[in-house]
C-alpha cells in the first residue's frame, strides 16, 4: 500500500517538473508580414519593432524565447492549441478576441486605423474597401456599409488598391505610413481616421496566468524607465507613445 502511494507521489512530482521544464522555452508567435511591427528580413529572420520588444521583454522576465511565424488567419487557433505561447503580432485588444484568449496590458497605444486610396475622392463608406481577413479593420468595414474585400496578407490589400481592385484599404496607420511615404504620391490617406481596439497587447492562452504576470511586469518596467517610448520612437518615425 505504502509503495503504491509513493509511486503516485513520484508521478506527480515528475509531472510538476515537466510543467516547469516546458516553460523553459517560451515560443513567441508572430505573422512576419506587417512591417514595421514584424516582418521577415532579407536574411530570413523575424525582425521589426515587436522582435526587439519581445527580446527585451524576455530578457526582463528571464524567459528563454524563440520566434515562430504563423499565417494570420490561423494565429489564434494555433495559440489555443499550444503550438506557441504568445501572440506578438500587432494584434489589437478587442472584446471579441478577449473572450477567446487573454491579453497583457497594451505595449502600443491605441493607434488610429486609416484609409489609403489612389485618388482622394473615394467614398470610403460606400465604395470597395480592402482589409486583411480576421482583423478589427475587416469587421469595421463589414459593418460600415462599404463593400468588404478580404485578403489573407496585409501586402495583398495594398496591392489590391494599387491595381484598382479595391477603392481603398483600411489598416493600422503605422503600417500604412511608410507605404504612403514611399509611393511617390501614388497613394494618399483619405477620409477620417477611425479608432479601433484598445491598444496592442501580447496575446496569451487564458490558462497561462503565470506567463501573463511575468510579461505584464516586464512591460510595466519598460514603460517606467522609458525604453518602450524610445523603442516606439525608433521604429515608428519618432512617434510619441506617451507612456
Amino acid at each position: 500500500m505504502k509503495k503504491l502511494l509513493l509511486g503516485a507521489a513520484a508521478l506527480t512530482l515528475t509531472a510538476g517538473l515537466g510543467w516547469a521544464e516546458s516553460h523553459s522555452v517560451t515560443r513567441m508567435g508572430t505573422e512576419g508580414a506587417y512591417p514595421p511591427y514584424n516582418f521577415i528580413n532579407d536574411a530570413g529572420e523575424v525582425d521589426g519593432f515587436e522582435r526587439e520588444l519581445g527580446d527585451e521583454l524576455c530578457k526582463r522576465a528571464e524567459l528563454n524565447c524563440e520566434w515562430v511565424t504563423n499565417e494570420w488567419d490561423s494565429i489564434i487557433p494555433n495559440l489555443v492549441s499550444a503550438n506557441y505561447d504568445t501572440i506578438i503580432a500587432g494584434m489589437s485588444i478587442t472584446e471579441e478576441r478577449d473572450e477567446v484568449i487573454d491579453f497583457t496590458q497594451a505595449y502600443f497605444p491605441p493607434d488610429p486605423s486609416a484609409y489609403v486610396a489612389v485618388s482622394s475622392d473615394v467614398d470610403v463608406m460606400g465604395g470597395v474597401v480592402a482589409a486583411q481577413t480576421g482583423t478589427i479593420q475587416a469587421s469595421h468595414v463589414a459593418s460600415s456599409g462599404a463593400t468588404l474585400v478580404e485578403f489573407a496578407t496585409p501586402d495583398e490589400t495594398i496591392a489590391a488598391v494599387k491595381n484598382g481592385e479595391a477603392d481603398a484599404v483600411l489598416a493600422d496607420k503605422a503600417f500604412l505610413d511608410p507605404i504612403v511615404a514611399e509611393s511617390g504620391g501614388a497613394l494618399s490617406f483619405v477620409g477620417d481616421d477611425v479608432m479601433l481596439g484598445s491598444g496592442i497587447g501580447v496575446g496569451l492562452r487564458e490558462s497561462d496566468t503565470e506567463l501573463k504576470g511575468k510579461l505584464d511586469a516586464a512591460i510595466t518596467s519598460m514603460k517606467e524607465d522609458g525604453t518602450l517610448n524610445a523603442m516606439i520612437a525608433k521604429w515608428f518615425d519618432g512617434m510619441d507613445a506617451g507612456y
Partner: peptide, 22 residues
Amino acid sequence: FPAWRQEGDALYYANYFADKTF
C-alpha cells in the same frame, strides 16, 4: 481570388466557422 462582401463558397464559410469557433 479574394472574397467580396464575404460572399464565398462552402469551404470559405466552413473555414470562417472553424476560425470563429476554434
